[in-house]
Design a protein around this nucleic acid. Structure first.
Lengths: 351, 351
DNA sequence: CCCCATTTTCAAAGCGCTTTGGTTGCCTCT
DNA sequence: AGAGGCAACCAAAGCGCTTTGAAAATGGGG
């Protein structure tokens, strides 16, 4: 059924060498000949045998990803969404991706083993922490890699794809300030991860410009689950001076936060405003909330796709463009944000 | 660094043939020799090159999974959890798994292509529907496969792993009946999927034994998201005769349902009882709910692991044990279930 | 003590691709 | 006219494993 290179070249009256070179874009092939080869490929449906290619080239045609095993990252829905994008792109190019779980202590060893094993020809890391040591390790290993997110401090010349977390929460906070809010709270992701650090920074910058300080008691830094959002919001609402404006690092957190808000008898968008970061999780759309959520949006799945594209590109062609992409987020206003309520009226919760 | 077969056999003073056979469990090798070989493997850390094995054997050492693209299955968190178990086991055995998205209309073609391509040597399917045609297709393709779930009707002699959905909801309903409940509601998964059909059947059987009919208006069949659970529960609570006992097919659905219950000012476990099926999603633990949830439990991740084990086993050894496993679920009682409230008192919602 | 059956080992031929190290024309330059 | 250069192609040698077909070692029976 499936033709192989020998049959294809026999069919064309060419040597395997020439056909192989025509297919792999080598220059020493006549343009006319190349056209004939490509036509024959289309007709026969020839697809190179990946196992043979792997054996001959030593390339694995697969990308590895070392997944930290730590609290809150385990089977995280956000990570799953990112992976979906990555997987889709990988399959399209007949690439595999191998997930390697590793505890932080063994991370470096895992990297080395993976790079040495030849089982993968590019690596990918995520969940960046400030001063993340993994970047230097990877740079020393001379294996292509890409980072989802960015470290804070340390080297800057490494390939990454990240979203503008600082800008996202800066803009969101600005919007809330313009609506008259003065009492803010933040429900953030784990405090060692750089996306969380940057979002907080963005928020504090905007607040600082308005001469406002973010109350440390009105901050939550935790894994991004529904439950954590709920608990944090409950705590905030029972504070001396409850917030009228809340930023959430995920719609999953917002899910719980909104639950707490409703339970307290407050009306979202009137008594309290909330903006969440939306990773475009198909299971949790901000517009499907009872009160549709105002969000800062950037598709996690799209990021996965982009990472895969780049990784695959850097393996297939030996293209040397160490990409650095910083995606802007969109600020989408829905019903969960409104003008700040008159402050004196709040404790009474008048209608 | 890494040794290959030639080096290993030279080291042992044996031929590659013998070493290879010793490693792959062929009978025509002296027991003593085999022991020496295995010792050498341990010392050198020899690992066979997968690409070479693939090329030589034609086996792909990878399992394929065709994922239906349809409403509600897209990036479903339940599916992700199952996959996590599968992936973990696959990595352990140096197997790949390839996810192939396909719309239902192209499903059969995708199967054929995949089976013919030689890119996978076993297939896996899930999201079983009643009379699912995919089983017959796979049986005709002479490629090992395994089903997560079971069809209803049609052939019975195919390998599957499933949980006892009927029994789970039968037991759960029985418990609620014993607690005095008479007004039931069901928030189920999509009505074409067999797990949902069986859960409903189990519930109806128990109710039938008590002479109770499940009100069609108090049923929801939908994708298992928080939002659907919320909406359904809201609808139920505004019915003429609202339920005092609710079964949910997922803790994700329960999340929304509980929100609606709280919002209505009802107390879970007192005014209304709820039992959810718990797939052991790390992000959503029933014991972390404000009122801990009574659940029927079975780990989706464990099922994924088991499926992978079997698939990998059936490829590595040519073991011919078409497994059929039906896992019992555990009924774990927590605080969300309680005695049925006195019926007349309910409309008033007295304390 | 030799022959045959059995056990244990081996050399060599692939699997389907890439790549090295040519060869063959043909054109230009001196 | 011959040297040199270049464009276009090719034969053959691997990559690291499995497996076929055959040979060597062993043992038992006549």
């Amino acid at each position: 059924m499936a033709v192989n290179l020998r049959q294809l070249s026999a069919l064309l009256g060419l040597s395997q060498t020439t056909v192989s070179r025509a297919l792999n874009g080598y220059p020493e092939v006549n343009a006319e000949t190349r056209k004939r080869v490509l036509a024959a490929v289309r007709e026969t449906g020839y697809r190179p045998n990946r196992a043979a290619q792997r054996l001959a080239t030593g390339r694995a045609y697969s990308i590895g990803l070392v997944m930290p095993i730590a609290a809150g990252m385990d089977s995280d829905i956000h990570f799953g969404e990112f992976l979906a994008g990555l997987a889709e792109e990988a399959v399209r190019h007949d690439f595999h991706f191998v997930i390697n779980p590793a505890v932080p202590a063994e991370e470096e060893a895992t990297f080395r083993r993976l790079a040495a094993s030849g089982n993968v020809d590019a690596l990918f890391i995520a969940y960046m922490r400030a001063q993340d040591p993994r970047i230097d390790i990877l740079k020393s290993l001379s294996i292509p890699f890409i980072v989802h997110g960015r470290a804070i401090g340390g080297a800057r010349d490494y390939p990454y794809i990240d979203i503008d977390n600082t800008g996202a929460f800066y803009d969101a906070t600005r919007l809330l300030l313009q609506l008259g809010h003065r009492d803010f709270a933040l429900i953030n992701g784990p405090c060692d991860l750089t996306f969380a650090i940057r979002r907080k920074k963005g928020m504090e910058r905007a607040l600082g410009e308005a001469g406002i300080l973010l109350d440390p008691a009105l901050q939550e830094q935790s894994p991004m689950t529904d439950e954590h959002g709920y608990r944090a919001m409950q705590r905030f609402l029972s504070a001396d001076r409850p917030p009228t404006a809340v930023l959430c690092s995920s719609t999953v957190l917002a899910l719980g936060a909104v639950r707490a808000i409703n339970q307290a008898g407050l009306v979202l968008g009137r008594d309290i405003s909330l903006i969440a970061h939306d990773d475009v999780l198909p299971m949790l759309k901000p517009e499907n909330f009872t009160v549709p959520l105002t969000t800062t949006r950037s598709s996690l799945r799209a990021a996965g796709t982009r990472v895969a594209q780049h990784l695959i590109g850097s393996v297939s062609r030996q293209q040397k463009t160490p990409i650095q992409e910083l995606w802007k987020t969109e600020l989408i206003v829905r019903a969960s944000t409104g003008a700040a309520p008159a402050r004196c009226a709040r404790p009474v919760r008048s209608a």
